[in-house]
């Protein structure tokens, strides 16, 4: 969910672009981190760990912790917290280590 009203901050409307997460069509602001767009759409589970298949999501939001890795446009292990959203991005939940094609 996006913040509608804030006592200090205003957030520019931005250009909304279409992208997909696991095939589902979603909209997010162009240039915001992929994970922010997913959160705005209520999606917080982004992958599953490779050994025990435990759910994974955001943790540090500054590209440090590798908790929010997903597959983006076929490329695995993309840090969704620091990768800007672009029109037409294909994001898929990453289960396990991912495959480099």
């Amino acid at each position: 969910m996006r913040i509608e009203q804030h006592p200090i901050l205003t957030f520019p409307a931005g250009k909304m672009v279409k992208f997909t997460f696991d095939g589902k069509e979603l909209y997010g602001k162009e240039g915001e981190p992929i994970v922010a767009a997913l959160h705005a759409n209520g999606i917080k589970v982004i992958g599953h760990s490779h050994n025990k298949h435990r759910p994974r999501g955001l943790y540090c939001a500054i590209g440090n912790c590798s908790s929010c890795l997903a597959t983006v446009n076929g490329e695995p292990n993309v840090r969704t917290c620091i990768t800007p959203l672009c029109e037409g991005m294909v994001v898929t939940m990453q289960n396990g280590k991912g495959v480099i094609k």
């Binding site: 996006r2 913040i3 901050l9 602001k29 915001e32 943790y59 500054i62």
Partner: peptide, 12 residues
């Protein structure tokens, strides 16, 4: 991370 989401990107 919480601050980044809400204060930079305006997402709860």
């Amino acid at each position: 991370a919480v601050q980044t989401l809400m204060n930079v990107y305006g997402v709860k």
